[in-house]
């Protein structure tokens, strides 16, 4: 029976009833599977996020029951609210697929494509996106944008060259920490994440910028180059923590905790942020209660096991660097 307060939206022919105010993207996530547009900047728990990367563009073929006119432009599904009777095309629209291909190509023109030496490889949303929607050859034959690597405090490395300016870390820093120390400097393709100016970010929760970063621009210095993610085994674990829920994922090699992260859902989103103590200073396995292996659903690279088990030579070299 239809709930009076729910409204109906149809995405790629699949209908779902959702609460008023729900975005098209969230409605699609309630359907699940293929109809879910990729999202590189939206992050449901971060207020103000979304609308920037344009990977989630969809076509609204029917505005609503009351005003059935289609929307002339493609709209960002992450920041467009559904209307009752709305009909949306995602994968079924050639226009959407073409625009998305364009966005992916544009996101990649200045990306260093240094996946073989990037810590994020294997759990990178840009890698996934390029794999699913991209074109195999780049038409960009100019020098790519480059930035110097910067240390943000003791634990975090910023490798701005890889950044896609999704602003997630900016919202995280603004919303989880007290002082506005982290933001965007300059504009256009010269824009960069700055920490006003290279000030160390000390807040207890600042480590979460690593988890929200969809690419390898913000990485955990206590983990960098220690191992490729796909050689590590993710385990759900928790500990008693005064500052946060303590619910984390331990990335294990044998008995060694190489890295601690928060738990992400299938869309790569953290629902419970963890504190720096859990993330950076609890690498001793005896500090944790292990719950069991974590299933990683989304990331094609990890789950599909695309890589061989042999450790490539350059990884070893980098360990020394």
């Amino acid at each position: 029976m239809a709930d009076e307060n729910k409204i109906k939206v149809t995405i790629d022919g699949k209908s779902v009833e959702v609460d008023p105010g729900t975005t098209i993207l969230d409605a699609a996530r309630q359907v699940g599977g293929d109809v879910v547009p990729p999202a590189m900047c939206y992050y449901s728990s971060l207020e103000g996020s979304g609308g920037k990367c344009r990977t989630c563009l969809v076509q609204v073929t029917k505005g609503s029951e009351r005003d059935p006119r289609p929307m002339p432009k493609l709209v960002p599904s992450c920041s467009t609210a559904v209307m009752d009777g709305m009909e949306v095309s995602n994968k079924t629209s050639d226009r959407v697929l073409e625009a998305r291909k364009g966005v992916v190509e544009l996101l990649l023109i200045n990306h260093p494509l240094d996946c073989p030496v990037c810590d994020q490889a294997g759990e990178c949303h840009l890698q996934d996106l390029a794999f699913e929607h991209g074109v195999s050859q780049s038409r960009y034959d100019f020098k790519r944008r480059e930035f110097d690597k910067v240390d943000i405090g003791e634990y975090i490395k910023l490798h701005m060259t890889r950044c896609i300016l999704c602003y997630r870390c900016v919202y995280t820093a603004n919303q989880l920490t007290e002082n506005r120390e982290h933001g965007v400097l300059k504009r256009g393709d010269a824009a960069e994440i700055g920490t006003f100016i290279e000030k160390n970010l000390k807040n207890d929760f600042i480590g979460n910028v690593i988890d929200v970063c969809p690419v390898g621009a913000l990485t955990d210095k206590t983990f960098r180059f220690r191992s490729r993610v796909w050689y590590t085994k993710p385990m759900d674990a928790h500990r008693n923590c005064e500052k946060c829920s303590g619910k984390s994922v331990l990335w294990m090699v044998g008995d060694e905790v190489t890295r601690v992260t928060a738990r992400k859902d299938e869309y790569g989103e953290v629902k419970e942020f963890i504190c720096n103590d859990c993330r950076f200073d609890s690498k001793d396995v005896s500090k944790w209660t292990i719950e069991g292996p974590r299933k990683i659903k989304r990331h094609s690279v990890i789950s599909a096991n695309h890589y061989s088990k042999e450790i490539p030579k350059h990884t070893t070299l980098l360990n020394k660097a």
Binding site: V103, L107, R187, D189
Partner: peptide, 21 residues
């Protein structure tokens, strides 16, 4: 336009520079 793009959204941030080049 390349110089003036705010850089918030990817098509404009990246596309304006590419066209310029």
């Amino acid at each position: 336009y390349h110089h003036e793009s705010c850089g918030q959204c990817s098509p404009c941030r990246e596309g304006t520079g590419w066209m310029k080049k």
